[in-house]
Write a protein that binds this DNA or RNA. Structure first.
Lengths: 159, 159
DNA sequence: TTTTTTAATGATAATGGTTGTCATTTACAA
DNA sequence: TTGTAAATGACAACCATTATCATTAAAAAA
């Protein structure tokens, strides 16, 4: 294997450097896993995948990497109420994929939805602008979640 | 003190009984604390207040009571990302007090806002109806949170 | 009221996701 | 190629929350 730089220059490398963070093999792996997954992953999900690619990677590194990715706003961190955080790339290859969540409070299933998003975006943009003005709060990200019972849990109401 | 029933009949007593739960002194205290507070309280916040009123009350009971209140949808449970859940009565004395949250990702400060709620409610109602139809998901509660930097943290950007 | 039944409670231990510590390794600038 | 500060992994610690279990109390039955 040649000794020169093994890696290409992914678009996010610049952002890393801008924040003073080094580009390491672990970080590429974690980013790659997030980029290659449709779903919101837990730290453990990511750890398992990363470990399969390189067993030397430790759990601590996964958390640390997710933290800095979140800090740089490349990743959004979610809580669905089941005691573990989920992580998701802020934008996919074709820009932000705007969606929200329906969370079943009985079985913890999460349904992503993208319906009604256009009207929503319009309202949110207006709201964000208003809130930013009133409270001088700089908004980077928002979260909308609906809680209730999924199809299945409505039927077997008795759990 | 007379030996007959010491308590009045708060409106939520019936709901407790409907679910088969007993009305106990601890549960009245927890409910009272939630009803008497404007803010979203953590389990520990509630424990401290409850303990002041009756030192025999244990942390476990606080959690258990909050769980059943949440199950009965008398209480909403929130996560602001600081590792502890917050609890808030679903409706105040004068009905649901609809508000949402601005969360500072730097200092974890939470600002409640009630601005723009009217337009929001209109859209949400429509969205909820649509989602309920499409996914057969029964929605009880929703959450809107904006994440960003509060006034203070924008200035001292360096923490 | 008294008794009976069963849920609720509190002390305490256990769980489990996440974070801190520290010696070692690595990225990358000089 | 070398120097240096950041990154890493193993492991311990943390801490909010949950499980266990013997005891107590609510409310139904007598």
């Amino acid at each position: 294997m040649p000794r020169r730089h093994r890696r290409g220059h992914a678009w996010w490398h610049g952002k890393f450097q801008g924040y003073g963070y080094k580009i390491t093999a672990s970080r590429e792996i974690v980013f790659g896993i997030l980029a290659g997954s449709e779903k919101h992953l837990s730290a453990e999900d990511i750890y398992i995948k990363a470990h399969a690619m390189n067993p030397a990677i430790g759990m601590t590194t996964i958390y640390r990497t997710l933290d800095i990715l979140t800090e740089m706003r490349l990743v959004n961190k979610f809580d669905f109420g089941d005691g573990r955080a989920r992580y998701e790339l802020t934008e996919g290859p074709k820009g932000a994929l705007h969606h929200h969540h329906l969370i079943c409070t009985s079985c913890n299933r999460v349904i992503d939805y993208t319906d009604f998003i256009d009207e929503e975006v319009e309202l949110l943009t207006r709201t964000e602008k208003g809130l930013t003005g009133k409270y001088n709060f700089k908004i980077f990200h928002h979260l909308i979640q609906f809680y209730g019972l999924c199809d299945k849990c409505q039927k077997g109401q008795d759990n």
